[in-house]
Design a protein around this nucleic acid. Structure first.
Lengths: 155, 155
DNA sequence: TATTGTTATACTCTATAACTATA
DNA sequence: TATAGTTATAGAGTATAACAATA
């Protein structure tokens, strides 16, 4: 494991520090279990993004996830190779690649989701359920993501 | 600027995604102004850390900030060269380097703090003051940073 | 033997630039 | 001319491993 702050003095309350630390803590918790299931964080994001609103162009997914086009190519390459999504040319605009989940892709997403939610439970353990909901809501609001239904994972 | 999600569909409500996005948004906002002032994010953290509880060993600062020792060497090298802190051998345990801010270091910290707080205001603009306080508190709690006084920047 | 600080190196992520094919 | 996707490359940021000095 990388670099866990060993208990000692927090000393810093700046929001940029807290968010950076939180980011790493969450990543450290989630990455392992996901990797065991054979996925990266971003692969999970892509699958989840497609699950939401299914046929989307690569570019749309890039925009939704704030992932660079050149990264997306590699991500989609792999997911396609593993038969988790299909990549077809848009007939109306042949520049675009339309992405859609396969059945296996939907199953993979579900699997990832379970692993991620489980890992998040332990990463955010100090927070109560209500606190997590509030935190979640505020994070979304801070990002300017309009008012969406939270879509919480059920236990 | 790097990779801003262009308005479109959020699609993802997973906490790991929100935190990752927030991390980048905040970093993108804060890094620029800090760089103009001649500092990196981590340099600001180090200065702030020393401000809190002044004479500390390099290792203590590493622990508090979850920064790797090898990174810390370079950070401290630069800050020392610029006369913002002093690095002296601990006489009781000559393996340790004791760090302490200089007067210029304290001034620099104050300058950075202003730049950072200003940048955070715009990065977290969608949140009200109360919401920011709540978010802040929850982030700290999630990290298991005991109950500290928030030490909010005053306007 | 374990710890602090140091150095050099490797690795991962992400961004950039240049190219193609379409529009 | 501008956009979608691709490719190859470069740059941050961070982790790893080995070493010297000290305990």
């Amino acid at each position: 494991m990388p670099n866990q702050a060993t208990s000692t003095a927090p000393a810093l309350g700046s929001a940029d520090f807290l968010i950076a630390r939180l980011h790493r803590t969450v990543r450290d918790h989630v990455e392992g279990p996901l990797a065991e299931a054979g996925f990266s964080l971003k692969a999970h994001w892509v699958l989840t993004c497609l699950l939401g609103e299914e046929p989307q162009s690569q570019q749309q997914v890039c925009n939704a996830l704030a992932i660079d086009r050149s990264d997306m190519v590699r991500l989609v390459d792999e997911l396609e190779e593993r038969g988790l999504l299909t990549r077809t040319r848009d007939k109306k605009d042949r520049r675009k690649h339309t992405l859609a989940l396969t059945k296996a892709g939907r199953a993979a997403q579900k699997l990832c989701d379970a692993a991620v939610n489980n890992a998040l439970d332990s990463a955010l353990q100090p927070l109560s359920r209500d606190e997590r909901t509030t935190f979640h809501h505020l994070a979304g609001k801070a990002l300017g993501l309009g008012e969406r239904t939270p879509r919480k994972g059920k236990k």
